[in-house]
Design a protein around this nucleic acid. Structure first.
Length: 937
RNA sequence: GCCGACUUAGCUCAGUGGUAGAGCACUCGCUUCACACGCGAUAGGUCACAAGUUCAAAUCUUGUAGUCGGCACCA
């Protein structure tokens, strides 16, 4: 067989994905079992404008690993993918492009033409990220791919809006909102981030009191807003100002007069204890304004320039120019008391980083109190969703819900779901699913639709069920019945509020059930210095580059190897080690294939009992009353499993590796059940590399490379191939491409190895049965015996290395042990001689060797390697003393424990017994070492 | 201000009451017929610090220091 010397990921990645998709392997319909349990997962929809980043790669790896694992277990799986329309980002991107190409603004084109252009852009470039997702190997059902602007999903959005409005859970109102003057749209609280500015200033402005020569000083970080002041507030308890309450201020730079009012909100200790109140430009001032019936004077335009209400001197000025001018004028008037340096925290737009302007405006809101209670009750009553890791996310989630404010859902954009509200000429609002319905409600055809669109997250909130066909008109579909609630959501911390919580609320409200059972919150991939990756820092690592350099499988392993929920610093060395692992798997398989004549993949080489059970099943048809015909039945089975049957005739090493394999399979499944991906990765890595490659292959190498065909050789070859086949299946959810590539090269693999649900599908490892591990094949005795052999070989190798014995020199090995251990070593003599590179193995009850021997002790045996003329006595003494010291330190500690009456009395008896045994073992070994040392001195 | 997490080998990280682990890097030795992306053998840690609970603490409790995150406030 031709097989390359090293693994080339590119070829495998290009071929297999296309084939899997073409054959429909990703679609749940591939599962033929009508009673199959289902497993479903929906992707957190990335932005249609987006590019794949490491966070996606991590998230997608975890989702796909779970999906592939469940699929192999025979679940009817759905991994649903799609993208969202990313209102602001997409509109900005297309706006920029039109400006560049045609020197036009969206307004020049008009709404209809502009949205057409956005669709053009989407159709042309919108599949960038989905193609990148294919590259990752995600086993997603592309026939069910969704987009938040799809007709049915849009219909769902309108339906939800109308119903919430009808129940008064959506309302329109005038509030202080977060306004981005660059994007010219309102933003929800969650889309506003903070930016610390060390070089901020606090300005102290003096306001003259009317009919008096007194002044009151207010402190502010935004002097320009004083043009919109409609009061100054002080704390009613503040002695300094008590007599001024109710006094009139002649507001400088304006010809307005404002009052001094008293409000508990003001903290006397802060600043001057007097606060200028600008109800139209500050959320707290707005509250005070409401309490005191203050005028709400808007002095800014939507682009953060001052408007006419700010006065002729200021109208048209940018907010920062206006600030300078206000200060200049105050200085001229002698009313600028001082300017202090002050660290300010500015709210900025998450996307464009422009400083947010709090602005009084009319918007649509979702009232969150009842919505919130739906989610809180679900958590209280069913502890759902379950967060992984539970700490801290469960608490963060519930605390956030408890303090939730109403959600601003309108956006001043053209790209998105236009709000289904129409106005008649009198300004009356009619919320309806369609214009026709609105006309009917209004009794008039002269209606104009609300110009705004809905927050993208409003449509994402419906993702778990709108993607499965729910749109208000259609509320029951086969997909909903089968796949909703989904099983697990995998997402990042930053999206718990924006998306996770809102999906919970809307699913409960509209489908009457939770959207998912479990939520995995994965960690953040940091750069190698532990810094967050960001465009501004330009320290991002492009997953596509990593795929090119190390392969997709190695990248997936690297990502899956991070502890669930924990941030980790990206290290190229780590991907490299998994690239090496992939190559190791490739070469181990290659080696076995180069020696595979006469061999076949056959699970009964690992588990003869399974074959016996299979025969039992087959014979059951003939032997209806099995119990009564035991003797006759056993006669039929026994000859097949006679002692000379190669499937039955297992060596210690065979039983050892089979035990290790099954322990690994059991533990991997257990780890995946609790989303401990890194645990599974570590188990597979160490089983395959350490147990299987470093020991088992080496132990059976002579046998399987034998030129001469015989039953024992072919059995060994079959066994090793079968272990590889099992390992590839175990690894497949993590390393889909490599495992598929190799699996297809093994002799006698076919769709017969598929899970029962996929028997008639074309052969592929992704539909093979996932090994669940067989506890009955765990053989502790074989593991203990094999450990003794490994220890013996390791000690001899150690002696060889320390004593600088040339590889070509083959010393004799003398071992003193009891009959049981002698027997174990005798059974493995050939392997011991080969792996320790020794001439002979001499077993006896006690050692009788020349003084010039290197010695070692292991549990149950003493080892000596005679090294006439080769031994360096000083070095040997140092070696033995090092071993002795190690053991004595341990003995001191353990004897200390045993000497403690409280320990012996209170610790569990097994523990005490264990330590006594260990002390006895150490005594034997130290005794031997001391005698050896004596002999050398 | 409130809540929370983290601190373990040179680096990146596992490890929730019973002998401190991995990968990488380091040191030494190997062109051993699958693999130098390899094989073999070493070395390396007061588990941040302090007190407490316990027969027993990296692990539980409290405090301290440092790092980071979320929320709130920010005149």
């Amino acid at each position: 067989m031709e097989i390359a010397k090293s693994y080339n990921p590119k070829e495998a990645e290009e071929n297999h994905y296309r084939i899997w998709e073409e054959r429909g392997c990703f679609a749940p319909e591939i599962n033929e079992n009508p009673d199959a349990r289902t497993f479903s997962i929906v992707i957190p929809p990335p932005n249609v404008t987006g590019n794949l980043h490491m966070g996606h790669a991590l998230q997608h790896t975890l989702m796909d690993t779970l999906t592939r694992w469940k699929r192999m277990q025979g679940f009817r799986t759905l991994f649903l993918v799609g993208v969202d329309h990313a209102g602001i980002s997409t509109q900005l991107m297309v706006t920029r492009q039109i400006k560049k190409d045609e020197h036009k603004t969206p307004q020049d084109l008009g709404r209809e033409e502009f949205t057409r252009r956005v669709w053009d852009w989407k159709n042309k470039y919108g599949d960038t990220i989905t193609n990148q997702i294919r590259r990752e190997g995600l086993s997603a059902d592309w026939t069910r791919e969704r987009f938040t602007m799809d007709e049915s999903l849009s219909k769902a959005v309108r339906e939800v809006f109308v119903r919430l409005y009808e129940e008064n859970w959506i309302y329109r109102g005038t509030r202080i909102v977060n306004w981005c003057p660059k994007d010219k749209t309102v933003l929800s609280d969650l889309e506003v981030k903070e930016d610390k500015k060390k070089d901020g200033k606090l300005y102290f402005l003096q306001y003259p009191i009317a009919n008096s020569d007194r002044k009151i000083t207010v402190a502010t970080t935004r002097p320009e807003t004083m043009l919109g002041d409609t009061a100054v507030a002080v704390n009613p308890e503040d002695e300094r100002y008590r007599d001024l309450i109710g006094a009139t201020i002649e507001l400088p730079l304006t010809n307005r007069e404002i009052k001094i009012i008293a409000d508990e909100y003001v903290e006397s200790e802060f600043g001057t204890g007097a606060v200028k109140i600008t109800p139209a430009h500050d959320p707290n001032d707005y509250e005070i304004g409401e309490r005191h019936n203050l005028e709400k004077l808007v002095v800014m335009n939507d682009d953060a320039t001052m408007n006419e209400a700010a006065g002729a001197d200021f109208a048209g000025l940018d907010r920062y120019k206006a600030r300078d001018l206000v200060i200049e004028k105050f200085e001229e008037l002698g009313l600028l008391e001082k300017i202090e340096d002050y660290e300010v925290v500015l709210p900025v737009c998450e996307r464009c980083k422009t400083v947010i302007e709090p602005l009084l405006s009319e918007q649509w809101f979702v009232k969150m109190d009842e919505m919130r209670d739906l989610a809180l009750n679900l958590m209280r009553e069913e502890n759902s969703p379950r967060f992984f890791p539970e700490v801290p996310h469960r608490k963060v989630y519930t605390t956030w819900l408890e303090n939730l404010k109403d959600w601003t859902i309108s956006r001043q954009l053209w790209w998105g779901h236009q709000i289904p509200a129409w106005y008649d000429e009198a300004g009356n609002v009619f919320v309806a699913r369609t214009k026709e319905e609105a006309i009917e409600k209004a009794g008039s055809e002269n209606l104009t639709q609300d110009q705004d669109v809905l927050d993208t997250w409003f449509s994402s909130a419906l993702w778990s069920f709108s993607t499965l066909g729910w749109n208000g008109e259609v509320t029951e579909t086969e997909d909903l019945r089968m796949f909703h609630p989904t099983d697990v959501l995998v997402t990042g911390r930053d999206i718990i509020f924006l998306w996770v919580s809102r999906m919970v609320m809307t699913a409960l409200k509209f489908v009457g059930e939770k959207p998912f059972s479990d939520v995995i919150i994965h960690g953040t991939v940091l750069d190698k210095n532990g810094q967050r990756m960001s465009k501004t820092k330009n320290n991002g690592i492009d997953p596509l580059d990593v795929f090119d350099k190390y392969g997709v499988d190695a990248t997936r392993m690297t990502l899956a190897d991070s502890a669930t929920g924990t941030d980790f610093a990206w290290r190229d060395e780590k991907v490299e080690s998994f690239r090496n692992f992939a190559n190791k798997i490739w070469n181990a398989t290659r080696f076995c294939l180069l020696n595979s004549d006469g061999a076949q993949v056959d699970y009964s080489y690992l588990n003869p009992k399974a074959e016996a059970q299979e025969i039992v099943r087959e014979l059951k048809g003939e032997l209806n009353e099995l119990d009564e015909e035991d003797e006759e039945f056993l006669d039929k089975v026994d000859p097949i499993f006679a002692k000379d049957n190669p499937k039955e005739n297992l060596s210690v090493a065979d039983r050892w590796v089979i035990s290790r394999l099954n322990k690994t399979a059991l533990a991997v499944n257990k780890a995946l059940e609790t989303y401990q991906f890194h645990e599974a990765v570590q188990l597979l890595y160490h089983f395959f590399w350490d147990d299987f490659c470093d020991w088992y292959i080496e132990l059976v190498k002579d046998k399987i490379t034998s030129e001469e065909p015989n039953v024992a050789r072919d059995a060994a070859r079959s066994r090793i191939l079968t272990i590889i086949e099992q390992s590839l299946r175990l690894l497949h959810p993590f390393m889909p491409f490599l495992t598929e590539e190799l699996w297809g090269k093994l002799p006698n693999v076919s769709n017969e190895l598929h899970n029962a649900a996929y028997k008639s599908a074309e052969q592929t490892i992704m539909l093979a049965d996932y090994p669940c591990g067989d506890a009955s094949l765990i053989d502790e005795r074989a593991e203990a015996e094999m450990q003794a052999v490994i220890d013996l070989i390791s000690k001899v190798r150690n002696i060889r290395a320390e004593m600088n014995i040339k590889p070509s020199d083959k010393p004799a090995i003398h071992v003193a042990a009891n009959a049981e251990y002698q027997n174990i070593f005798a059974q493995n003599e050939a392997q011991i001689l080969k792996l320790a590179r020794a001439e002979s193995l001499n077993l006896s009850e006690s050692l009788d060797v020349p003084k010039a021997s290197a010695k070692a002790v292991i549990a149950g045996a003493e080892i000596a390697v005679p090294l006439e003329g080769l031994i360096d006595f000083d070095k040997e003494i140092a070696r033995l003393e090092a071993q002795l010291t190690k053991l004595e330190i341990e003995a001191t500690r353990l004897n200390g424990q045993l000497g403690n009456a409280n320990f012996v009395e209170r610790a569990p008896t097994e523990k005490v017994e264990e330590i006594r045994n260990r002390v006895a073992e150490i005594e034997t070994q130290t005794g031997a070492l001391k005698l050896n040392l004596e002999a050398l001195k």
